[in-house]
């Protein structure tokens, strides 16, 4: 088990290998379908993303709220492959890591190698368990999208598995 704490830098992810387990303490930004579409649109037209994507950790997640302010009730990953077509602009803008569930299109491992980023998976369907690792929550952008807004999470000991490393090795290729 590898522990990563604090601000992630792309360079520090270089040694991670597909299949390794990681626990992460630090900042995560959520983005799923509609936020990706918007961010990709803004970047394509030469604009600026509404959040800083440099060395960002992007989590494909649309959380449920909870009765306690600034927390989430349930917050597991959504299917990553739906974000495949919007992934390059996010990586180009500097994202260091992506978190989701499931396999990716073949082009994603090439893109991760090109940009030196990593794709993690976390425990799909364990939304309540994962929500307990999320200590602080705030809306970072696109509030109008509700569950699909960009949220900033402060996480502690968030469990991850390296699914595709920065050399493009894919844990899921050839499986199933």
């Amino acid at each position: 088990m590898i522990s990563i704490k604090g601000q992630i830098k792309k360079a520090s992810l270089k040694n991670l290998k597909a299949g390794q387990e990681v626990i992460y303490t630090g900042t995560i930004l959520t983005a799923r379908d509609q936020a990706h579409k918007k961010i990709a649109g803004v970047l394509a037209s030469g604009g600026k993303a509404p959040v800083n994507l440099k060395d960002a950790v992007i989590y494909y997640c649309g959380p449920t709220p909870y009765g306690i302010k600034n927390t989430v009730g349930s917050a597991g990953p959504t299917t990553s492959s739906r974000m495949d077509d919007y992934t390059e602009p996010v990586l180009k803008a500097g994202a260091a890591a992506l978190i989701g569930k499931g396999s990716r299109d073949g082009k994603i491992s090439k893109l991760l190698r090109k940009y030196g980023a990593v794709y993690f998976v976390t425990i799909a369907g364990a939304g309540a368990y994962l929500a307990k690792k999320i200590k602080k929550v705030k809306v970072a952008a696109y509030k109008e999208l509700g569950a699909e807004a960009v949220y900033e999470f402060q996480v502690e000991d968030f469990p991850l598995v390296v699914a595709i490393d920065s050399r493009g090795n894919d844990l899921y290729s050839g499986r199933g």
Binding site: G62, T64, S74, A126, G127, A128, Y129, A131, P159
Partner: peptide, 24 residues
Amino acid sequence: NILKILLENAGIAAREKRAICQDT
């Protein structure tokens, strides 16, 4: 290990009245 976490998840959800999965 994963199955154990899934069982734990079900326990947390029931005890704390959280959604088992965020996709309700």
